[in-house]
Structure formats: C-alpha cells, structure tokens
C-alpha cells in the first residue's frame, strides 16, 4: 500500500482510574495494513490502552488522533464506523442468534426508525463469509464454543467497519482492536483465530492491534510488537528486536531462554525456565 497515512496515533497519552495512573506518555502509531501485538504483564495497561484507542475511555491527558484529526472532535458513530473493538469476552443476556449478533455490528450506520439498508445486509453477508461463520448463523450465540464465539464477534467487528459494497479497502481504512483474542481457547482454536486475523490483515489490508499474553503466538503471527510495562512503552519493533532474553527477564521477572522457531524465520520463541528445584529435577529426569 503506497499511502502511509497515520490511521491511529497517540500523543502523550495518559490515563488514570481514580488516582492510580495506569498509562503514561504513550506514543504509538498504527499505519494502514499494520499487524501489531500489544504485550506486557498483567496490569501493565494493555486493555486500558485499547479502550482509549476506540473511545470507550477518555484520556486524562494527551490525545488520540484518527487519520490526522483529534478523536475528541469526531462524532462517536464516525469513529465506530472505522474502529471496531473485540472484547475479551462478550456476554449477551437473552437468546440472540449469531446472525443477529453480527448484524449488531451495523449499529453505527442505523437510521432512526428505519430498517437495514442493502449495504448493511451486504456487509453482514461478507463478514459472515470472511469469518467462516455461515454454518453458525442460526445458532444461539450463548450455545457457541469459545472459538466459534470469537469468530462470531470478529464477524460483528468486520460488519462494523465494512466499507460499502464494492469499495476497495484502502479507500475505507479500518482498524480492528482485539483484547486477548486467544485467551481461554484450546491450541487448535488459538491457531484458527490467529490465522483468521492474519488473513484479514493480509488479504484485506485491515490494520490490527491485539493485546496478547502468549509471547510465542504474538511472535509467530504479528509483524510488530509493542511491549508495555507498568503503563509505559518499554520497547517496540519486530519480534526479533523486542523479544530478547534480557528484556523479557526484566519486564516479567522470570528466567527464560529465547530460541529461533524450528520452522518459521525471524520468529523468536520464549521458553520458560522453572525456578524451583523440583521442576528442574523433573526436567532432567525425563
């Protein structure tokens, strides 16, 4: 993609719940087609940062810029038409079907007292196809497994930021923010969901920023990593640049070894070292 306009950019972002500062001096930029993982220990402010980026939370200081303009000056629904948020877990009271859930993604396009447009339906259809949720549409959202649920919510997010029918993606740049998309999932579903996110990024130019707790999956699937610690960015760059042994040990306070992935290039893998004697013995004896 030739144009490298800055879709999402934060300038000196600061946030605090009541008195405790959660994020401070956050400066980051998301370009069209970016695929970025946000890493950091629990409580480092990952989720809070995502919520600031899509306007769920309002910064205490600094600002979030969307495509060159201060998000505080944009209408909420304009922002929602470009930035979708996939929460860690979505719960819905009452028995909504999957197709009803995906259609809720069109909320920012709703016209008062009027029904869905042709474009709304097209966006929902396309999101359904892209996420492979066609078989799920008539099932109740509450009955889905974790992996199916995650795909349905990603479909809702896609419907939310979908460009109008036939409009190429680079004329309607959009950002997907995902909060721990693989948490609570089995390894097969972790791979499935990350492959889906990866292909949406590669085939349709969707910019992605996802918080991750699994360093190795982040290294395998994401082009760039931003590492947070105690509310500040401590490193950002490619997985090779960010995931060094020294840095992980200092941020997470855990002994690790970092090695190359046996089959993927430029994909460091973090191997944990046990800290107590028993663990080590077991490792040696087996």
């Amino acid at each position: 993609m030739s144009d490298k306009r800055e879709l999402l950019k934060t300038e000196g972002l600061r946030f605090a719940y009541s008195s405790a500062t959660v994020l401070d001096e956050i400066n980051l930029t998301l370009l069209p087609g970016d695929l970025v993982a946000l890493l950091g220990p629990n409580g480092s402010g990952k989720t809070t940062l995502l919520k600031l980026l899509c306007g769920i939370l309002t910064p205490r200081a600094g600002r979030v810029m969307w495509d060159g303009s201060d998000m505080a000056n944009l209408r909420r629904r304009e922002v929602a038409q470009r930035i979708a948020f996939v929460p860690q877990e979505l719960t819905v009271p009452f028995a909504f079907t999957v197709s009803e859930i995906i259609s809720l993604g069109r909320t920012p396009y709703a016209r008062m007292l009027l029904g869905e447009t042709k474009q709304d339906r097209a966006a929902v259809e396309r999101a359904t196809d892209l996420t492979g949720t066609r078989d799920l549409v008539d099932r109740y959202f509450g009955d889905l497994s974790g992996g199916e649920r995650q795909r349905a919510v990603i479909a809702m997010a896609l419907a939310q930021v979908a460009p109008g029918s036939g409009q190429p993606a680079h004329e309607h740049p959009a950002v997907l923010l995902l909060d721990e998309p693989t948490v609570h999932l089995d390894i097969n579903h972790q791979i499935e969901v990350l492959e889906l996110i990866h292909s949406l990024n590669r085939s349709y130019g969707l910019s992605v920023l996802a918080t991750m707790h699994d360093l190795n999956l982040a290294s395998m699937y994401f082009d760039r990593i931003i590492l947070l610690n105690a509310g500040s960015i401590v490193a950002q760059g490619t997985p090779v640049q960010v995931l060094s042994r020294e840095r992980i040990e200092s941020v997470y306070g855990t002994d690790v070894v970092v090695e190359g992935h046996p089959t993927c290039r430029n994909t460091p893998q973090v191997i944990l070292l046990p800290t107590n004697g028993n663990g080590r013995e077991k490792a040696i004896s087996s």
Binding site: I56, R77, A80, F85, P87, L90, F94, T107, Q160
Partner: peptide, 14 residues
C-alpha cells in the same frame, strides 16, 4: 447495543 454491555455500546458508537 446496550445488551452487549456499556463498553461494547460505546465501541459501537453510542
């Protein structure tokens, strides 16, 4: 949108 929770309602532009 409110049925999805307040955060998600905000993310959907409410």
């Amino acid at each position: 949108a409110f049925l999805l929770g307040e955060d998600q309602a905000a993310a959907l532009g409410i």
